[in-house]
Every structure is written in C-alpha cells, then in structure tokens.
Simulated scan of single mutants.
Amino acid sequence: MLEISGLTIRYGAFLAVGSLDIVIGKGDIVGLIGPNGAGKTSTVKALGGLIKPAAGRIAFRGRDLAGVPAHERITLGLSIVPEGRGIFARMSVEENLLMGAYAFDGADKAARMRRVYDLFPILAERRWQAAGTMSGGQQQMLAVSMGLMAEPEMIVLDEPSLGLAPIVIEEIGKALIRLREAGVTVFLVEQNATLTADVSDRIYVMSNGTVLHHGTAEEITRNEDMLGALL
C-alpha cells in the first residue's frame, strides 16, 4: 500500500530525517513511535506533500508521489490527520465534516457522515455544536472523522492521543481497530507507546531522524530498556 524508501528531509543544513525506509501493507495498522524531534511529523508532512524531500521515494499503491500536489493526494485515497487536530473551531461539527469531503463534489456526503457518526456517536449528538466548544477528545474524534470523509484507503494519524485523557485514548484505539475491520489501512504516528502497541501489527521506533528498530508490537514492547530510553 505504502512504500517509503531512502526518505531524507532537510531544513537547510539540519537533517530532520535520514534515509528512512517503511513498508505498510494493505489492511495493516503500522505504528511509528519516537520522542519529540525524532522526525515523525516531518515524515507525515512529506507524505502529505507539504514539504519536498531532499532525497528518497514515496510510493502509494505503486504510484510515485513525487510531483503530486498535496490537494490531489487525498483523491488518490491517502488522507492525513495532522498533529493539533486542524479543525475549524467556529464551524459546526457537520460543517467540519463537509470540509473533509471538499474534493468529492459528486459523492454521497450524507452517507459518509452516517458512517463517521456510527464510528463516533457523540459527534452525531453534537452535529450542530461549534467544534471549538467541544472537549479535546471530541475535537480529536472530529479531526479523525474529517479525514475519513474522504473515504480513504489509507489514513495517516499524527499524534492523535496528544493531550487526551486515558479513557479517550482507549476510545480512539478502539476506533482504529474498527477502521481496520472496515478495510482502512492505518499509519499511526505517536509518542504513546501503549496505544501504539495495543493496536498496531508492526511498529517502527524512530530517533534523531532514523529508524532504530522495527518489528511486531510484541517484539518492540518486550524491549523495555529501548522504549524507556526513547520515550
């Protein structure tokens, strides 16, 4: 589904990501964990077309994404949910969801809304509420739902647990499992090792712009010394 090979990202002389290799198969939940400054968000921005890599290749469903503008990547089936939620605070929940489907004029947007409301019923209850007045957890559910309004084949989530209470993080984890059951491939970029291990098939551990280790969730979580040092 997604193949990242030799990805290198620089900000001037600063090397943010160095020769990153990641492979994600269809229907997988794959985690990328690491501390602040590891290069995780830079990787997400490169996937979304928001920054141009210095080197390397990103291929989605066999297509090289070099030169594909950010606004076109979502129509290919790749949806990005950025760190910090990125909702429209003064707009209602329903208006935010419609913005998530802006690139799909002929789509049955009502049907798409029903599906995200099934995933997060609280959003249906708050559909006319201004998004900025909801709790942080509800705002994160909305951000994920906006990404799902594109009905992507793959969704990339950057730090979805940031600032959330443990009970809300657990609910986000359950939603990710339901997404996989619905056939959506998930790339989970996180600092929260517990959430990542609970839902992921495989995990990449990143620090200082490089992957130090990758393996199954069980293999990664057994290495407590490594996780403790990194996170």
Rank of each mutant, 00 (worst) to 15 (best):
E3A: 03
I4E: 06
S5D: 14
G12T: 06
V17L: 02
S19Q: 14
L20G: 09
L20T: 10
K26L: 04
K26A: 11
D28L: 03
I29W: 12
G34T: 07
N36W: 11
G39C: 00
T41Y: 11
T43D: 04
K45Q: 13
K45S: 11
G48Q: 03
G49F: 05
I51K: 09
G56E: 07
R57Q: 14
R57I: 11
I58F: 05
G62Q: 03
D64T: 05
L65I: 12
A66P: 01
V68Q: 08
A70I: 09
E72C: 05
E72H: 14
T75C: 14
G86Y: 01
M91G: 01
E95C: 03
N96R: 00
N96H: 04
L97C: 08
M99T: 14
A103R: 15
D105I: 15
A107P: 13
A111C: 02
V116I: 03
D118V: 00
P121F: 08
I122S: 15
W128A: 14
Q129K: 13
A130Y: 02
G132M: 13
T133H: 06
T133F: 10
M134W: 03
M134K: 05
G136V: 00
Q139V: 08
L142N: 08
S145E: 05
A150K: 11
P152H: 07
P160Y: 07
V168T: 01
V168L: 04
L176G: 12
I177T: 12
R178P: 10
E181L: 05
E181F: 08
E181C: 03
T185W: 08
V189S: 06
E190C: 05
D198K: 12
D198P: 00
D198N: 14
V199Y: 05
Y204V: 12
S207E: 15
I220G: 03
R222G: 00
N223H: 13
N223T: 01
N223F: 07
G228W: 11
A229W: 12
A229V: 14
L230N: 10
